[in-house]
Design a protein around this nucleic acid. Structure first.
Lengths: 335, 335
DNA sequence: CTGAAAGCGCTTACAG
DNA sequence: CTGAAAGCGCTTACAG
C-alpha cells in the first residue's frame, strides 16, 4: 500500500530543496555529482515517478492524443487504433479513444469536449452521417482552438487538415485491370458505401479501368436487403464473371448469394473485396482482398500529428500521405 | 485561432478575483446572483472551459481510466472497449487504451507506466502469455500503488481484484445439453484456447453436460495446423454429429475442414461457436454462436471500477459479476 | 553548486 | 458577498 512519493517528500528526506531534487533527476549540469547520486538513489529506492498531471500542467500540454473512431467493430479501425497506440507508446504518449458510432451527434459531442484541452491533438475518421450531411463545423471548431487535427482514412472531404489515407481509387483500378488483363471483362461492382468518400473513390477506380469496356455493372444500396437483391441480379441475370466489393457488407452479401444460389466461387464467379486479412483468409473459400495496411496507417497518422505539434511542418500547408494498397489473391479470384 | 481563455483572464476582464469567478461558475451560494450572472455571461461569451489538467491536479485525480486489451482485432474486445467508452463518457471520464498483444512483456511495460499515475483505475484482461507463465507481479504492483483494478473477461486467475466475466462454463454446459436433449450425443469440442482460463471453463461445462455419455471427444491445439488435423479426425474418423468450438479459430477451422471435405453443415455436422454476432450471421451457412454481450460487460466493468474508486465497496472484499450468455441459433445448429 | 520564488490553471478554506 | 492565500506537484529562470 505504498502511495506515490512526491518531489517534496524526497527533498525533505534528503535535506535539500525541491529544485535540487528536480534538477538532479533531470541530469542538470548544475548539480554536483555527489548530490545527483544521492538523489537518484533515494528516488530509485522509493520508486519515484513524477506525477504526469503536474508535469503536464507545468508544460501546458497533456501528453495524450485523442482518436475518434467511427466503428470499432470494423477490424480495419481496430487495427488502425493498434498502430496508433503502438507509435504513441514509443513517444510516451497516451491514446484516448472516442467512438462516434458513425453518428454526427456523437461526433459533435466528442469534438466539443476535445476543445476543452483533454488532448494535444486529434486523429479522426469522419463519421458516415457527418459526410452525408456535410456538417463539419465541429471540426473547424477544433481547428479554431488551435488543436492539431489529422484526418485518417476518410480523407477526401476537403478539410483544411493534415491527412493520411489509403489509395482507394488505385486499388480498384488495379483490381479491375487484373481481371481485364486475364480476359475477364464482365466485371461488376457491389457497394454498400457508395455514398461516402472512400466508396466513391473505389467506384471511380473501377470505372476508370472499365473505360474501354462496353458496360459497367453496379449494385449499390445502403440497405442490406436491397443490396442483396441487386447483387443477386448481377450474378444471376446480368451474369457477371467477377465482382469487386467495396466493403465487408457487400462482400459477405455476395458470398451469401453465391451460397444460396449454388454459385461456385471462384469457378463461376470471381471475387475481390475489402476486408481484414484474418477474416478473408478464414472464409471458405478464402476471399481475395485488398490489404490496406491499417497498422502502418495508424503509425504514420501519429507521426504526422506529432510532426505538426512539434512544428516540423510549415503552418498553413497541409500534408497528405497516401498508403499504397496490396492486392492479395486467395482462393476467390483464382482463374 | 482563439486560444483558450483562463480563469485569470476572465477575472481581469470582469474586475473581480479569480476565486469569485471560480465560485460563480460552480454555483457557489457565496456569490451574489448579480455577480454570478455577469461571470457566467462572459464565460459563455468566451466559451470558457476549465483546463482539465489543472482541475485534475487540484483534485489529485486524472479523470481517466486505463483499459488494457490483449488483442484489439478480436471483435469481442473491440466491443467491450466500446461499452467501456460509452459508460465512461456518461461519467465524463476518458478512456486510455493500451494494447498488450497477448504479450507478458508488453503488459508489464503498460502496468509499470500505469503506476506513475496516468489513470484513476485500470481495467484489464490478462494476456495469454501472462496466464501461461502465471506471472502476476506487475498486477500486484498496481494494487500496491493503490490503483483500483478490475479484471474483465479472463477472470479465474485468483487475483485479489474486482472481476467481471462471462458465464463460460454454463454456456457450454447448455450448448451441449441442447444437443443431448435433441438426442444428439456424439458431441465433440474443438479448442485453440484450452490452455487459458476461459477455455478451460468452457471445456468443463462441456464435460459436465457429457457426464452421462460414454465418451467425450476433444480436439485441442494452439497450433493452427495441428488443430485442423485434429478437427478433421473428429469429423471424418470419429464421426461426431455436433461440434462445440471454444473460440473463433477453432470454429473457422471447422468450417474450413467441412468445406474441404464436402461435409454439409448443419445436415452432416452441427456447429456452435463463440464469435461475434456480425461475423456469425454473415457466414454461409450462418454460424450458431454464444452471445457474450460484450457491450454490457464493458459498461458494467466501468461501473464496478467507479464504485470501487468512490468507495462504494467495502475495501478488502471483492466484487465478482458474471454476465449470462445467450445461445443464438442460426443455420449451423439447425436440426 | 544550491535554493527561494514564480508560475502552470485551478479550487477552497479562511479572513474580512 | 468578495478576495487573498495556500496548495495540488512539478519546472526553471534567477539570485546567491
Amino acid at each position: 500500500m505504498k502511495s506515490k512519493i512526491t518531489l517534496k517528500e524526497l527533498a525533505k528526506l534528503l535535506n535539500v530543496s525541491v529544485s535540487t531534487v528536480s534538477k538532479a533527476l533531470h541530469e542538470s549540469p548544475e548539480i554536483s555529482p555527489k548530490t545527483a547520486q544521492r538523489v537518484k538513489e533515494l528516488a530509485k529506492l522509493h520508486n519515484y515517478r513524477p506525477n504526469p498531471v503536474a508535469v503536464n500542467l507545468k508544460k501546458s500540454k497533456t501528453g495524450t492524443l485523442g482518436v475518434v473512431i467511427p466503428n470499432i467493430s470494423n477490424s480495419f479501425f481496430a487495427r488502425v487504433l493498434s498502430g496508433m497506440e503502438d507509435e504513441a507508446q514509443k513517444n510516451g504518449q497516451q491514446v484516448i479513444t472516442y467512438i462516434s458510432n458513425e453518428s454526427l451527434e456523437k461526433e459533435k459531442q466528442i469534438c466539443d469536449m476535445l476543445t476543452s484541452g483533454f488532448v494535444d491533438g486529434v486523429l479522426i475518421a469522419v463519421s458516415e452521417e457527418t459526410q452525408k450531411k456535410k456538417d463539419y463545423d465541429h471540426l473547424h471548431a477544433l481547428l479554431e482552438y488551435d488543436i492539431p487535427v489529422v484526418v485518417y482514412d476518410r480523407i477526401n472531404l476537403g478539410l483544411p487538415t493534415d491527412k493520411i489515407g489509403v489509395d482507394d481509387e488505385k486499388s480498384f483500378f488495379e483490381a479491375a485491370n487484373y481481371f481485364i488483363s486475364k480476359g475477364i471483362t464482365r466485371i461488376g461492382l457491389a457497394s454498400g458505401i457508395h455514398h461516402v468518400g472512400i466508396g466513391q473513390l473505389r467506384i471511380k477506380g473501377y470505372q476508370k479501368a472499365m473505360a474501354e469496356q462496353k458496360e459497367t455493372f453496379l449494385a449499390t444500396s445502403t440497405k442490406p436487403m436491397q443490396l442483396k437483391d441487386k447483387i443477386k441480379a448481377l450474378i444471376m441475370d446480368t451474369k457477371v464473371d467477377a465482382l469487386l466489393c467495396t466493403d465487408f457488407e457487400s462482400a459477405i452479401m455476395t458470398s451469401r448469394v453465391a451460397y444460396e444460389e449454388n454459385i461456385k466461387i471462384p469457378e463461376d464467379l470471381k471475387l475481390i473485396g475489402y476486408m481484414s486479412k484474418d477474416v478473408a483468409g478464414f472464409l471458405s473459400p478464402s476471399l481475395s482482398y485488398i490489404e490496406q495496411h491499417p497498422q502502418e496507417l495508424g503509425n504514420m497518422a501519429v507521426q504526422i500529428l506529432n510532426n505538426r505539434v512539434s512544428g516540423k511542418y510549415e503552418s498553413g500547408k497541409f500534408v497528405e500521405e497516401i498508403i499504397a494498397t496490396t492486392l492479395v489473391h486467395l482462393e476467390s479470384s483464382r482463374l
